[in-house]
């Protein structure tokens, strides 16, 4: 698989991931990126409760009842209590996607995934282990499954 073909292949997957963000769904926003779900890079949730539950599991929230503050309609802050030291970590935002903010969050996700894509494709194409065409193709498919495919699959099951 040549670089151009690999790029097209991964771009299709990125487009699917971006399109999986839809108005009405919820995302978890960290300091500078959309945080994917635990167990697979799913980037949005059907409900706020799902988003909070998933992020709580990921961070091992020590609280039985999550500490969530409403900032405004569709925007909440979730404070995870560290299970080791008992202090609150920096909050993440739980945000409802709307027609007004969807475009910016899709752009944010696309930018993140394109950065991952560039780094990953460069390392695959520079790695002598993947000099063989079949091995390289397998590495690229494996990367897209890991980073992107599971998210598409998960979203298509819940939407």
């Amino acid at each position: 698989m040549e670089y151009e073909a690999a790029l097209c292949f991964v771009n299709e997957k990125i487009q699917c991931a971006v399109d999986s963000l839809k108005s009405g769904r919820w995302i978890v926003l960290g300091e500078d990126n959309i945080i994917p779900a635990v167990g697979g890079p799913q980037f949005s949730y059907t409900t706020k409760k799902d988003a909070i539950f998933d992020f709580g599991c990921r961070c091992l929230d020590a609280r039985r009842i999550p500490k969530v503050k409403k900032l405004r309609d569709g925007v909440y802050e979730y404070y995870v209590k560290d299970c080791d030291d008992g202090h609150d970590k920096s909050p993440v935002s739980i945000i409802k996607l709307t027609n007004k903010n969807l475009g910016e969050y899709q752009d944010m996700l696309r930018l993140d995934l394109e950065t991952i894509r560039d780094e990953e494709l460069d390392s695959i194409f520079e790695n002598p282990l993947y000099a063989d065409d079949d091995a390289r193709k397998e590495a690229i498919v494996s990367f897209t499954h890991r980073e992107i495919y599971e998210c598409i699959k998960a979203n298509s099951e819940t939407v």
Binding site: L29, G30, E31, D32, L71, R72, V75, E77, P91, V92, S93, I95, N101, E104
Partner: peptide, 25 residues
Amino acid sequence: LKDGSMNRYNFYYEGEAGNYWIQFL
């Protein structure tokens, strides 16, 4: 409008030929 770690600033301009929504993040 505060989206947690990100602030979005909304401005609008009503022109003669069109209307414009300006957003800074």
